[in-house]
Write a protein that binds this DNA or RNA. Structure first.
Lengths: 304, 304
DNA sequence: GGCAGCCCATAATTTTTTGTTATGGTGAGC
DNA sequence: GCTCACCATAACAAAAAATTATGGGCTGCC
């Protein structure tokens, strides 16, 4: 039994005639004749009474018409229901944002999501960047901004931006006065205050050190960027940060940041989500908005 | 959107893989690929997330699957429902009909049932009306026509008709010549030939006698209406019958029937069946036909 | 009571849809 | 980097549905 047969049958009952129904349904009359016959064969009893001037439904036919109408209607409503679901995202969505990006993204993102999809309950989880990957993998967050260009297994990533790292020093520190840039080797020999292994710029700095064959001189490991900046301002050492972040916030006073060159160190920012399970509709919407916002920030020139 | 597409989609979601679903559904995998694609195009959003080891439904897909399952099930049930309505009536059905009603009902009922439900083996048990109630209660018959308006305990009844009783006398009997009606008191004093207690009009006559404070003068008790009529025609006494029945049949010759008045005696005819167990489908069909036939008889004016 | 008109059934044919086989592309895991 | 499992696509075959043409039956009107 086919939905089309039911639709045709409804037309037949409604018009009381195969010929009229055929006209209304825009098909040839024999098509209806055949479908009706098959329907009757399948059900096993006559559905209409044939008379000289048309057909009238039998009792079974009437019953079938009632049920068929319900089914056809539900069928038609199905499409719209799913569409409506898609059109009005709602429910929870969670995004993980590393501390170093939070300051620029969190507020506009939250506001924009609230404005465009009031029914979405967006939760922003700020944290050290090293946690993001595992959170995404485990499903703790729907998506997260992550660093690093090679997409980790099990994650799908969308490129967002690339940013250059710079050396951050206390204002007036000897190594930076009068300079507009510093070469990598010099940086790696300075006493550095950096986050622990999986976080922030640490991976890039480690890699650069390994590539240059230089042992890092890490004097402190602190998993809190703002505290690192404070320590650097105190003259307790130097650190490496994205230029953007180093200059951001009131806490930038007392600090200078100069680009690292020969070679430059860059890191890639991506928006990642688990590749083996689909984003919820709400999450998809947030994903799109986040990319939009980030793209705008890039275009604004506040980013490379 | 087609019911088949929904079925396929359900298979896909259930198996989490086009390949596995194709196997289970006994179709080639590309067929599913195509159907899925069309569904997604029609609805306008992805329904499953493709991964390297299969597919997982998106939120929309999950919702669709739920609704689709309902629809598919309803669709499948439809055929059986309609069949149950008409095709299924088959097997035995037993109806009890009092003798006094048999002459007008039995033949058309049997013919109509045979015509509409050839698979039903209808058995008609004619008998004295007093037996009907107990037969219905005991399940000896599925349903029966009974007299009396108050529904007996354990029985569900449907009103059929109400008929007036009249005095039956031999043609030319003194009490009836030149009269068009007779008052109750006069009737009750006549020598009556009646069926035994639980049968036919006896209950009504007894009740009327009690109400009037008159002792009945029953000269014979015969549990066979035709014999009673024959005796009355012989001048052996008088009897009380429904006017309809008294006048019916060839046996009415030699008899006259005049309505009883002041007060009239009426009896109610109902179709009864056991209320504590459902009628079989066949019995239900017969029940409906019987009511239909009886309603028609009433409308024909052959009944009040 | 025959003829015309309307309506449904059937047959033959064409068009459309659905399904199949073969094959290519892609991501995951070793 | 290679292999494997899986889905997508293309070309082709089969099946289903629709169309045109035509026949037969029942009304209702001359």
């Amino acid at each position: 039994m086919d939905i089309r047969q039911l639709r045709y049958f409804l037309g037949i009952v409604e018009h009381g005639s195969l010929t009229k129904a055929a006209e209304a349904l825009r098909v040839a009359q024999p098509a209806l004749s055949l479908h009706l016959k098959r329907l009757e064969e399948e059900i096993g009893c006559p559905l209409v009474h044939r008379t000289a001037r048309g057909v009238v439904p039998t009792q079974s036919g009437q019953r079938l018409a009632i049920r068929a109408a319900m089914l056809v209607e539900q069928m038609a409503g199905l499409r719209d229901e799913i569409r409506g679901l898609e059109a009005a995202p709602s429910g929870p969505a969670v995004i993980g944002i590393p501390t170093s990006l939070g300051s620029m993204l969190t507020v506009p993102l939250v506001l924009d999501v609230r404005r465009r999809y009031p029914a979405i309950r967006l939760r922003v989880v700020e944290g050290l960047s090293g946690h993001m990957l595992e959170w995404v993998s485990s499903g703790e967050v729907d998506m997260a901004l992550v660093f690093g260009s090679e997409p980790p297994p099990g994650l799908a990533t969308r490129f967002v931006a690339r940013e250059r790292l710079g050396l951050v020093a206390a204002e007036g520190a000897e190594v930076v006065v009068g300079r507009h840039s510093i070469d990598l080797a010099s940086v790696l020999n300075l006493p550095l205050i950096l986050p622990g292994q999986p976080h922030g710029v640490r991976a890039e700095v480690d890699r650069a050190a390994a590539a240059a064959g230089i042992d890092l001189n890490v004097v402190m490991e602190i998993d809190a960027l703002e505290q690192i900046k404070a320590l650097v301002a105190e003259g307790a050492g130097f650190t490496v940060l994205s230029e953007r972040y180093a200059r951001a916030g009131q806490e930038a006073k007392g600090l200078v940041c100069i680009p690292i060159v020969s070679p430059e160190i860059e890191r890639t920012i991506s928006l990642a989500h688990a590749s083996d399970r689909p984003l919820s509709i709400a999450a998809k919407a947030v994903h799109a908005i986040a990319l939009d916002q980030l793209g705008r920030l890039t275009k604004d020139g506040r980013w490379m």
